[in-house]
Design a protein around this nucleic acid. Sequence first.
DNA 1: TATGTACCGTACTGTACGGTACACTTGCGA
DNA 2: TCGCAAGTGTACCGTACAGTACGGTACATA
Lengths: 227, 227
Amino acid sequence: MNNSARHMPIQSPGGVAEEPVLRDARDRRRLILQEATRLFLEEGYGSATTNALVARVGGSKSTIYSYFGNKEKLFGAVVDHVLAQLKTATEDYDPPGGDLEDCLVDLGVKLQAIVLSDDHIALARMVIGEAHRFPKIGWIYHEHGPALAQQGVVDFLLAHDTMPGSGLEDIRDAAEWFTGRLIHRAFIRALCGPGIDADPDEPGRIAQDAARTFVQRFTGPGRGAAA
Amino acid sequence: MNNSARHMPIQSPGGVAEEPVLRDARDRRRLILQEATRLFLEEGYGSATTNALVARVGGSKSTIYSYFGNKEKLFGAVVDHVLAQLKTATEDYDPPGGDLEDCLVDLGVKLQAIVLSDDHIALARMVIGEAHRFPKIGWIYHEHGPALAQQGVVDFLLAHDTMPGSGLEDIRDAAEWFTGRLIHRAFIRALCGPGIDADPDEPGRIAQDAARTFVQRFTGPGRGAAA
DNA sequence: TATGTACCGTACTGTACGGTACACTTGCGA
DNA sequence: TCGCAAGTGTACCGTACAGTACGGTACATA
């Protein structure tokens, strides 16, 4: 018998996602997914337990299992969910006017913001840490994360006719120079742990450097092939 | 506490343990560390079990625990061990003669070989996946891995007087351009899982591009400082 | 021959966790 | 008022695993 008070959807403490009071039980699945996402991102796959999820969501394990079957499937749903959010964020990108360098700075800053966001770092950590157990999820993440971002930069360079006369291969290479400079170091550092060498100004500085140097060295005259 | 005197140590039927090599028990600790390293790199921290380690090493759990205390400490020892090996590999680097581009290609290829080696990828995955549980190990890895490699490139550029007249900050930035181009994409891809888009020729091509483009655009006249 | 030490083999403990069973409750529509 | 689907609370199961206990062995040294 249940003698405790009727369960109230007491609130998830952590987080970005503000929960609109989902009293209506039809949204049960969404709430579970939402809380599972927070939980997995905070704890990682291995350390996140189903009981902890129940404690957050309220309700019972039975409901969770009736919706998602098992923990692995729930994990898959969470990864899809987060990637979908990230994808939306990139699709909404609207380049400002101004000259190329300004546009590249803007693009760079936005890209950094997404890649280095707490949610994305947590997701990447989780996926990388479990890549050997869930190779498929590693692949999905790669295609909907890094590869997509890379393609986004290529599209940007094409759309702005940044390197007129260059072949697609050269543009791809240039995009890799740009993203490598923009992201590599900070991303690895973030993956290794929070607060390593933290300098909040650095991303901005690097975006500036990436844009300026890119314009100077990769666009305009004198960038021909041949060696 | 257990006071039930149930368990009778049924005896080993004579010395069956036919261990081929390293019968000399003085190397016990080293052997354990060695096998633990292989095991952790193959399975990851969470999935590697102490029983599996016993099965590999031979002998008994008691011995392992007498040396390392618990699983976490064993893990720490393993990370130290692998990083020490990687460090040795970088310290032994001996740049060839030839012009700058050739040297950079050589440096790039060697760096890629280390960074993308199976052992390093497995280590990085493990560290990244557990960074939230073992922040200190994340930090140690970062300092002895990525940060060290970065510094190695800076040292190379300085030693070859690649950018005469440039300040240290500019050289650091240039080094980040180089390593970002050289490694970023392939590293992320490798972390996400084996066999994504695998093209065995690509690392070589990228090393070539990184070296050639770097020389063209980041050194010599026309890069902002006198030559 | 005695003794100390490093190691072995195996049974065992405690616990955490994924997952299930099942009786019970609630909201809703007919 | 009834039936039903969805959800709830809780006890429970099986298993996996870290870590321990402890008697026994191999061997070197005294």
